[in-house]
């Protein structure tokens, strides 16, 4: 792989997020190369989700700059960032509860529609053809994530693990260059986590994706991440390969400390 410092897809230049008196993330500096799988770990409340929210435009960083694929995306709206090619999933699942599995995925195609609402109301061919093609694409995608058999079920009636997979499918349907996964293995048993790991590795290959994931399951993180960033109380306390992180004294203490606090 080329030198990531010269050829990176996402760079966060010391981004900081302040909520009142609380610095949820301070001076986070990420530098991620295309097609890399990067893990973001840290104890509860470390600021991981907040970092995702800054990158995806949900929060505007208090200071710092985010560059994605050569564009300055700091302060853009989430939908603009999605259109530039970053997709995400949510820690607390956020599916569209009134819709079926297929309809959830199909929604991600809405912005790709070239037709006007008037054409849709009148059922003109430019709209109906595009819509039909999108349905086919989404069915294909559901096939690949093994959700095709439940395509017409209500999304929120699926078991937990499948809902997480659907969130990933929905993000993939936006045709991203990079995907941000917030605790994709949460609530899964070891077998399911293992399948998820394989799944993530596979979609990276298949779609040429860059992956940034938050995860508490260490076997998942150590298993597939090529680079790991550790946050604690908003500070970046370590970065490196899985082996480096595993042997890092500060990281071990942060985790032990967190265990002590919660005990």
């Amino acid at each position: 792989m080329a030198n990531p410092w010269q050829n990176s897809i996402l760079v966060t230049d010391n981004i900081t997020m302040q909520f009142g008196g609380l610095k949820a993330v301070s001076n986070l500096a990420l530098n991620i190369a295309p097609r890399q799988i990067v893990g973001l770990i840290g104890p509860n409340g470390a600021g991981k989700t907040t970092a995702f929210n800054m990158i995806t435009g949900v929060y505007k960083p208090t200071s710092g700059k985010i560059t994605f694929d050569g564009n300055d995306i700091t302060g853009l709206r989430p939908n603009q960032i999605t259109e530039l090619g970053i997709a995400r999933t949510f820690q607390n699942i956020r599916l569209f509860s009134s819709m079926s599995v297929l309809e959830n995925v199909l929604l991600s195609k809405h912005v790709r529609l070239k037709a006007t609402p008037l054409e849709a109301i009148l059922g003109l061919p430019r709209y109906t053809r595009a819509r039909k093609r999108h349905i086919e694409e989404c069915m294909d995608l559901l096939e690949q994530v093994q959700l095709a058999d439940v395509a017409h079920e209500k999304a929120t009636s699926l078991p937990y693990g499948k809902q997480r997979r659907l969130e990933i499918a929905r993000a993939l349907a936006t045709q991203p260059k990079m995907i941000l996964l917030d605790e994709p293995a949460a609530g899964m048993n070891p077998q399911e986590s293992l399948e998820l790991m394989e799944f993530i590795a596979r979609i990276r290959e298949q779609f040429g994706l860059t992956v940034l994931m938050i995860e508490h399951h260490m076997e998942v993180v150590m298993g597939i991440c090529e680079h790991i960033v550790v946050l604690d109380h908003g500070e970046t306390i370590a970065q490196g390969t899985p082996t480096e992180i595993q042997n890092n004294q500060q990281v071990i203490e942060a985790y032990l400390g967190a265990v002590d606090e919660s005990a």
């Binding site: 995806t56 949900v58 709206r77 989430p78 939908n79 999605t82 259109e83 997709a87 995400r88 949510f90 956020r94 599916l95 569209f96 509860s97 009134s98 819709m99 929604l107 991600s108 809405h110 912005v111 929905r170 993000a171 349907a173 936006t174």
Partner: peptide, 14 residues
């Protein structure tokens, strides 16, 4: 209506 934050994350201009 269902989830504004998710809709925006899927590219919808709210």
């Amino acid at each position: 209506r269902d989830n504004e934050i998710a809709a925006e994350a899927m590219g919808i201009d709210i």
